[in-house]
């Protein structure tokens, strides 16, 4: 099978197949049955599965999340969609205090098979309240699973796994992945939650990354290859439960570690990954790990500032070279425009 589709189409296909195969699956969120269908990911699903199963909602993220928790603990398998991670912040109470804890707190008698999709905005002045990448928040809560698929293949397979999972699963999708194509089987399949994947094998340095940062890491690996450095890129795919084994195995092999994340570096998921490496492979580490993430400032809106806010592939390459003590001058091709769009065809707004 070599059919290629885009990431957003893979998400749509996953939801269509879940709706098709399980009567208890519903998809709900602001604009879900609407004409643009959450950046295409739910477009026209309502035509095939009807307005009872593909639903809009009032702007009531808090109550609607609790509502779907109630539905999920009574037999349904809802998928909730937020156009921005920032909007899901209004739903933290039912997710964090309730859904995450129900199975444990009720002695295993309750299940909340709820899937919550949320999208990270970036660029075109998304600014402080439309761009937050809060994976570390959710990963910090025992009882929640957090996935961040990078490829179209995993976007489909992991969303299907999430819907079938009996635990609440938070799926964090980076908007800049949506237009990227990959080989995606037509049939329904699961990509397991909790397993990282080596995207590019290498022996000199390990770059652990997730989501859009994994693509940057791959680009960095190419730059490093030009400089004679052989980087391994480990795509986490799942944040929690964290695949510590794969991290440790890779660091044991290379002895060096860089972590790249789309979120704020400080107190972010990179800290946990470095910790996993130190705890599991300290004897193999030949140099201090480096990390690449966002500085501890809110997202600025002006392109002149966001230009310096978001890390790029070159920053990951530099960090990797630094772990080797290598002095390399990396250069990035000039794009002639701001780096605030996923590709030049993009003309805003979101």
């Amino acid at each position: 099978m070599t059919r290629e589709i885009k990431y957003f189409e893979a998400l749509r296909e996953a939801q269509a197949q879940c709706l098709e195969s399980d009567r208890d699956v519903v998809v709900m969120g602001l604009g879900v049955p609407g004409p643009t269908g959450v950046f295409g990911t739910t477009k026209n699903l309502v035509d095939d599965y009807g307005p009872d199963r593909v639903l809009d909602m009032p702007s009531s993220e808090n109550a609607m999340t609790g509502m779907l928790l109630g539905a999920s603990s009574n037999g349904m398998r809802p998928i909730m969609v937020h156009m921005r991670v920032d909007f899901a912040v209004l739903a933290m109470e039912p997710l964090v205090n309730q859904a995450a804890k129900w199975h444990y707190m009720y002695g295993g008698k309750m299940r909340a098979p709820l899937t919550v999709r949320m999208i990270i905005g970036q660029g075109w002045g998304q600014g402080p309240q439309h761009s937050q990448a809060l994976q570390a928040w959710f990963a910090h809560i025992p009882g929640l699973k957090v996935i961040m698929p990078t490829t179209a293949h995993d976007a489909k397979g992991m969303l299907i796994s999430a819907v079938r999972d009996d635990a609440p699963v938070i799926s964090i999708e980076h908007r800049w992945l949506y237009g990227i194509s990959g080989v995606v089987p037509e049939e329904m399949y699961e990509t397991p939650i909790g397993k990282a994947r080596v995207m590019r094998p290498g022996k000199d340095v390990t770059i652990v990354a997730a989501s859009y940062a994994s693509l940057l890491a791959l680009r960095a690996a190419e730059m490093l290859a030009d400089a004679g450095i052989d980087a391994e890129v480990l795509d986490l795919r799942t944040i929690t439960p964290l695949d510590r084994e794969s991290i440790v195995a890779s660091v044991r092999k290379t002895g060096r570690l860089v972590v790249a994340d789309t979120g704020t570096a400080e107190f972010g998921i990179s800290a946990e990954i470095v910790c996993a490496a130190v705890e599991g492979a300290s004897e193999s580490l030949k140099s201090a790990p480096h990390r690449v993430g966002l500085p501890s400032v809110p997202t600025p809106t002006s392109p002149a500032l966001s230009e310096h806010f978001y890390p790029r592939a070159i920053n990951i390459a530099e960090a990797a070279a630094a772990t080797l003590g290598a002095k390399v001058q990396f250069t990035e091709p000039e794009t002639g425009t701001w780096h605030d769009v996923p590709d030049p065809s993009f003309t805003g707004p979101y």
Binding site: G125, G127, P128, Q129, H130, T301, S302, P303, A304, L305
Partner: peptide
């Protein structure tokens, strides 16, 4: 326009 003469120094944009 995201400029330094903006009412929020360019940090907020139209939404702030």
């Amino acid at each position: 326009y995201g400029k330094s003469d903006g009412c929020a120094d360019g940090k907020g944009g139209s939404q702030h």
